[in-house]
């Protein structure tokens, strides 16, 4: 099943996007942890589109497409704002003490860590597209005596 939404480039839409992920995640049979992982990553991607791509210009829109079936959710985020390369950020080193921690870069780190597939491309028309995909983990069943 597929659903498409256009949102204005305003961070106030993030809560609504989060609620959509919860609804769709439940329909696709995901558990609470999987849904919260997907919500976190989609909010990061949309925040990038709003803040870095569209510069918080609420007159401009970005598009989110949810494509799901039981056990699998694929999401596309399309945005045609300012050029930027989200892949240029280094992942933070999470093993260092607080005073040596970098304060940015966690969004992309979550994306790499929590999604089964993720890719980013810029079309010839300048439209930037993120694709993220998450599959439900097959839960191990315990052998009963």
């Amino acid at each position: 099943m597929q659903l498409s939404y256009d949102f204005p480039a305003d961070t106030s839409v993030l809560e609504k996007i989060g609620k959509l992920v919860i609804q769709i995640g439940q329909k696709a049979g995901f558990n609470d942890v999987e849904i919260s992982d997907l919500q976190l990553v989609l909010v990061e991607v949309c925040t990038n589109a709003i803040v870095h791509g569209l510069k918080n210009d609420s007159e401009k829109n970005f598009q989110v497409i949810f494509d799901w079936e039981t056990g699998k959710i694929e999401i596309f985020v399309h945005e045609a704002g300012e050029p930027f390369d989200p892949l240029s950020l280094k992942d933070p080193n999470i093993a260092v003490p607080l005073d040596k921690r970098q304060s940015s870069g966690y969004g992309l780190y979550f994306l790499h860590k929590l999604m089964d597939e993720a890719d980013f491309r810029i079309g010839k028309d300048g439209v930037k597209t993120w694709r993220i995909l998450k599959r439900k983990k097959i839960e191990e069943t315990k052998d009963t005596p």
Binding site: L14, L40, V43, T47, L98, R101, S103, S104, Y106, G107
Partner: peptide, 11 residues
Amino acid sequence: FIDSAGLRVVL
């Protein structure tokens, strides 16, 4: 819910 923007603030 907390995201990387929220984490940055607490950090």
